[in-house]
């Protein structure tokens, strides 16, 4: 297949994973703009495992995801006490902290970045993406999925109805971080070079845009948002940097006109 199209397809898949990582956390009523931090953890851990320790790529990505999940749990607990603005600042700062750690350590290559990773097969990225989508899809149909919706709708009323709010919220962060970790691991082994500035605040905050644009209540919404985010700049290639301006304007327009995103209907539980 044409190199250009494979590259675009891989970018799309990684964007889907990033979008889903935000989606999962948002589903529980919490907004995380720090998923680039989890992505960085996944990417660096996977990259280090495969280059320094010679672990196979899929296993490295999985391990990176586990490391990211751990961070997700660690972030998720204090996040319980923060809401809205403070959670936004907290998650941004978490990402900045991960960046600063990566900048200092030798094993991550410092500011020069981590290189030398072998290239991951596209099939693996596809497998990861499909697995994540399938798992999320099934999860939403379960009674836990109902709990998550209740927590997002009104966490106090949910607690009064017996839902383990704390567990749900921390689990959501953990799951979101794990998915971002997979994205990071795939990203590291596709571009074969990562550095701290790949996970800047801009990147991290922009990660929420596809979900908001596509539809925050549906997996399909996150996927659509990621598709638009990947394809639109390509369609508007002639406009160079201005294509992102158009994308930004589009996001603001949609948010104002259709706050729940393009695909906004909620899916009914069976």
């Amino acid at each position: 297949m044409n190199v250009y199209y494979t590259g675009l397809f891989v970018t799309f898949l990684i964007n889907v994973l990033c979008a889903l990582s935000v989606y999962v956390i948002l589903k529980s009523g919490q907004i995380s703009v720090g998923n680039a931090g989890f992505m960085a953890v996944g990417g660096y851990v996977a990259g280090i495992l495969s280059t320094v320790y010679g672990l196979g790529i899929p296993a490295s990505v999985a391990a990176g995801s586990a490391a990211a999940a751990l961070c997700g749990a660690v972030v998720g607990i204090p996040a319980l006490r923060l809401k809205g603005t403070y959670l936004v600042i907290g998650t941004i700062s978490f990402t900045a902290m991960i960046r600063s750690i990566a900048q200092v350590l030798d094993i991550t290559g410092g500011a020069m970045g981590l290189k030398g990773m072998k290239r991951i097969g596209i099939l693996w990225i596809v497998i990861f993406a499909v697995l994540v989508i399938a798992l999320l899809f099934l999860f939403e149909k379960t009674r836990y999925g109902l709990d998550v919706e209740a927590v997002a709708a009104d966490s106090e009323a949910a607690a009064a109805a017996g839902v383990r709010v704390i567990l749900i919220k921390v689990l959501s962060f953990t799951l979101g971080a794990a998915i971002a970790g997979i994205a990071g691991g795939c990203y590291a082994h596709w571009t074969q070079y990562i550095e701290p500035s790949d996970f800047s605040t801009s990147v991290s905050t922009m990660m929420v845009l596809p979900v908001i644009l596509g539809g925050r209540n549906r997996i399909a919404g996150a996927v659509l948002g990621a598709a638009v985010f990947t394809i639109l700049p390509e369609l508007l290639r002639f406009a160079s940097v201005w294509r992102m301006v158009i994308y930004g304007v589009l996001v603001i327009a949609i948010v104002i006109v259709k706050p729940d995103g393009l695909i906004s209907g909620r899916k009914r539980h069976a």
């Binding site: 940097v241 992102m244 603001i252």
Partner: peptide
């Protein structure tokens, strides 16, 4: 106007993110 007045309350922060992205790309342009 575009990020506080027009959008719904819980989406305001997101619009500022988009606005920041727009501005940054305008500068690069």
């Amino acid at each position: 106007f575009f990020c506080l007045r027009l959008p719904r309350g819980d989406t305001q922060v997101v619009t500022t993110i988009a606005m920041g992205m727009i501005l940054q790309n305008v500068y690069t342009g």
